[in-house]
Design a protein around this nucleic acid. Structure first.
Lengths: 239, 239
DNA sequence: TTTGCTACTGACCAATCGGTCAGTAATGTA
DNA sequence: TACATTACTGACCGATTGGTCAGTAGCAAA
């Protein structure tokens, strides 16, 4: 007894008023129905793209699936044809938006010939160009914000994104240590310390002081790289 | 027509069923009412303490005021006697829990005699002991998570906490530069780079990899201080 | 044109939660 | 004991939203 036509024909009980109110509009509006097309192939990535935009802007919990669907030009029902739940939608977002960037970074790193310091610096700015300066920048903040209440998402992100990023940095550091360019430091801790300010740059731009103080990303990342390289350099090495 | 007794006497309309269902329990339960005391003075800080715990654990939006009230041993109605809104409660939490720690840090810093490097290192570990290792540690993550959807809170936290913390660090750096111990670097950027890993340490422990990988805070902060001091040291100065 | 398949719709449901307020009871006062 | 004050309660309201599903309509084969 769900469809509006039926309810309108036989209004009954408490919801009669509400049902009437909304469907009168429909009727007055006449047959002005939105043209609807059937494009099974394109829907999932369109929905994922819309979801990325809204998740980043409002957070996972605060994003309404109605809005995601509308933003992708379909109804919420359609969204549920392609994703079984809100969490499934999130995983698709990570898969479609972030993993390709990670692969690009891995290739960039594999092909780069130069000192570890150079690679480190260029990798940082590569990261910035491909992630920090794009709409992907909001994802780290998104993860930090929501991971507590959605441990499933957190684990997914950790396994599919964080670990790969850390491995990348670890390789650069190991290369530098092996060549005698860097001091022998604890790899895991060093990775943490390199990543932290980069993550924080993203986070800050999307929260706390978002509108209070602009951070000069260029200057910030430059100084960060200087500090890291200088801090890890072996004694004899010119920082 | 709100009180249950009245509604029960004259059940009518759509909510009769629901009203009955819930108040039958009350009656069957008999007069087993919780002893209630009147302690106007103690309530606000008890509520704020309960709120801190829950905000940090679940986030601002996800924390129910019913739970905060219950956790403080009162009803939600009582909570609203002392705080006009959820946001007002948050401000009280910051005021009661964080500002005292900031004052302690300011005093610690003012009384400390030593090189800028020493002060920086000790201030970092002071911070860790007083905030990072306590339940306050969750607050930075809380702010990052919620600031997007609650700009009012973000501004409050920024003005009352961030700015004071930054001023503190700025003073240490300025002292170091003046004495020739540190290089002449851009203060704002340097502050950002010192704070970022400390914030990130808190954040990490409360999210993303919270249960995936333990971070050795001691080692992490030690290396961080080493890097900062080494990175800012003037040429002639022994790092 | 008819029929069958299925992509798509949107009203609805059930549960959640910030906030309200009429009523209750603990405490002080006479 | 009678009365006044007020801290406290908890059922209720209204708005919100993830998820459902009976029904609609685009499309192609017969």
């Amino acid at each position: 007894m769900n469809p509006s036509s039926f309810v309108n024909s036989f209004p009954s009980g408490a919801n009669a008023a509400a049902a009437d109110a909304s469907s009168v509009n429909l009727r007055v509006g006449g047959d002005r129905r939105k043209q609807r097309s059937r494009r099974k192939e394109a829907r999932p990535s369109e929905l994922a793209a819309a979801a990325l935009e809204l998740f980043v802007e409002r957070g996972f919990a605060a994003t309404r699936l109605d809005d995601v669907a509308a933003s992708a030009g379909v109804s919420k029902g359609t969204l549920y044809l392609y994703f079984n739940s809100k969490e499934a939608l999130f995983k698709a977002v990570v898969q479609e938006a972030i993993v390709p960037e990670l692969i690009a970074a891995e290739q960039f790193m594999a092909n780069h010939r130069g000192s570890a310091a150079e690679v480190l610096r260029e990798l940082t700015f590569f990261w910035w160009r491909h992630s920090g300066a794009t709409r992907l920048a909001g994802v780290p903040k998104l993860m930090i914000a929501e991971s507590g209440n959605f441990p499933e998402l957190a684990k997914y992100y950790h396994d599919h994104v964080m670990m790969r990023g850390r491995a990348l940095l670890g390789a650069v550091l190991a290369r530098g240590i092996e060549s005698g360019e860097f001091r022998r430091v604890d790899l895991e801790t060093a990775i943490d310390l390199i990543i932290a300010p980069v993550m924080m740059l993203h986070v800050w731009r999307y929260s706390v002081c978002a509108h209070e103080r602009e951070i000069d990303a260029e200057a910030y990342l430059t100084m960060h790289c200087d500090m890291i390289i200088r801090g890890f350099a072996t004694e004899g090495n010119p920082a």
